[in-house]
Write a protein that binds this DNA or RNA. Structure first.
Lengths: 162, 162
DNA sequence: GACATTTAGTTTCATTAGAAACTATCCTTC
DNA sequence: GAAGGATAGTTTCTAATGAAACTAAATGTC
């Protein structure tokens, strides 16, 4: 927060021009990249499989979590519980997942993939992974590792600074 | 796309379980990080300045672009033109920006910050930069540079693979 | 120079998301 | 064990979003 303008101002007056170069602003850059990647990936699961992003995320988490509930999906994906609820409902309506009230706690509903859901993922997941592979093929193994590492650091820092 | 299951299957049948580990899936990781950063930053400009993300982006671009139009904002920010139109309208209503029809082309409207708009940015931009500085303070200079670099590579690759 | 086409921006309309209210179950505590 | 929270999930209601229709101005074509 230093004054590095060369015009000799000694204090920040309201007419001083403060600029923000978004090309150097990490939140903006990250958001734009993530947004574009999302949009590109969406073509895979939306056009071919008629899934929206919330539904896709529920399925993806189901593919490697055996005991999943709506609550957990909310926590893992950072999505609103209403949104998750609706995604689960439509997946169930389509017969891709099934819900069973938990034995221990009747409020919880255990989610599981149906055969149809697993079959869909068996086709979709390799496509998604192939697409990702194409995306990161421009990076060296080290760059890719560093990227994930740096992202983890930022997540941890985010939790610290709120 | 190799079969690395150890169960001796020779072909991919529909009951084979294909998993996707989202923690290793870049699009998901990137999206979640970007999302959380956006949400945190939103507190700055939403709570203190009553700006939504679209309005904030228009102002930020205006702060270092002298000849900006709605069309350019769309291109720079990847936002829908309806959304941009509405953001511009509300900023104008609040007296933070002004619009003048371009001399050369009456369809275009040149956007510029008003004094009030510049004054707002003079307060907000340093806050945003300070917040970003806090976020990236967990990274070394090299890591930060590499991160931006890698992101640029991914953007370029995105354009290539669509 | 009229007529079709493109482009910038707005408006309308249908969908979506999220906030808040609500239901049903569970947990605490007295 | 009844009362007063919590908690998981759904529903309702409102606001935001994007697709598509629309307006107005520019450009191209004949």
């Amino acid at each position: 927060m230093t004054m590095d303008k060369a015009d000799g101002d000694v204090s920040l007056e309201s007419s001083a021009r403060v600029e923000l170069d978004l090309n150097q602003f990490l939140p903006y850059q990250l958001n734009r990249l993530a947004d574009r990647i999302s949009q590109a990936l969406e073509k895979l699961y939306a056009e071919s499989y008629e899934l929206n992003i919330a539904q896709w995320r529920v399925l993806a988490w189901l593919s490697h979590c055996d005991d999943l509930t709506a609550k957990k999906v909310c926590a893992y994906t950072n999505m609103d519980k209403a949104r998750v609820s609706r995604a689960i409902q439509s997946l169930e309506d389509r017969g891709l997942i099934s819900r069973t009230p938990s034995q221990q706690d009747q409020r919880l509903h255990d989610l599981q993939l149906t055969d149809a859901g697993q079959a869909l993922l068996n086709k979709l997941v390799p496509e998604a992974q192939a697409w990702e592979a194409g995306l990161v093929s421009t990076l060296s193994v080290g760059e890719y590792r560093d990227l994930l590492n740096t992202m983890r650091k930022l997540e941890r820092q985010l939790e610290r600074i709120g």
